[in-house]
């Protein structure tokens, strides 16, 4: 590619910084005992479910755990599909 091409094409070609950032976030999590991470999530999920089950019947299959690891903050999302609730006022 010509000098021109590499100059103009540059903005779309600089993928290496993205790669570096992704690796830094990933490895920071993996180095700090990620082996326990899924155990922790398992526990959280089990205990949260336990609390909810005291009040509602929940199907295990209708529970989704989502995670997005970030640089300084991670997002843990637990989606629970709740069946139609019967209110006391209903027949």
């Amino acid at each position: 590619m010509s000098l021109f091409g590499s100059f103009f094409g540059r903005s779309s070609k600089t993928s290496a910084p993205v790669a570096r950032d992704r690796l830094q976030i990933l490895l920071a999590h993996e180095r700090t005992g990620n082996g326990n991470e899924s155990d922790l999530l398992n526990k959280l999920q089990a205990e949260i479910l336990e609390v909810i089950k005291r009040h509602i019947a929940v199907d295990q299959d209708k529970v989704q755990v989502k995670l997005d690891r970030g640089n300084s903050v991670s997002m843990l999302e637990i989606d629970i599909e709740v069946p139609q609730m019967r209110h006391s006022g209903q027949p």
Binding site: S38, V65, K66, L67
Partner: peptide, 25 residues
């Protein structure tokens, strides 16, 4: 990592095989 999903992994193939997670999870 190649698919760009590395930050979203919660459970994996072995978790499913060992019954720690459902496939859908």
């Amino acid at each position: 990592l190649v698919m760009g999903a590395e930050r979203r992994v919660v459970f994996d193939l072995i978790n499913v095989i060992q019954g720690d997670a459902k496939l859908s999870q």
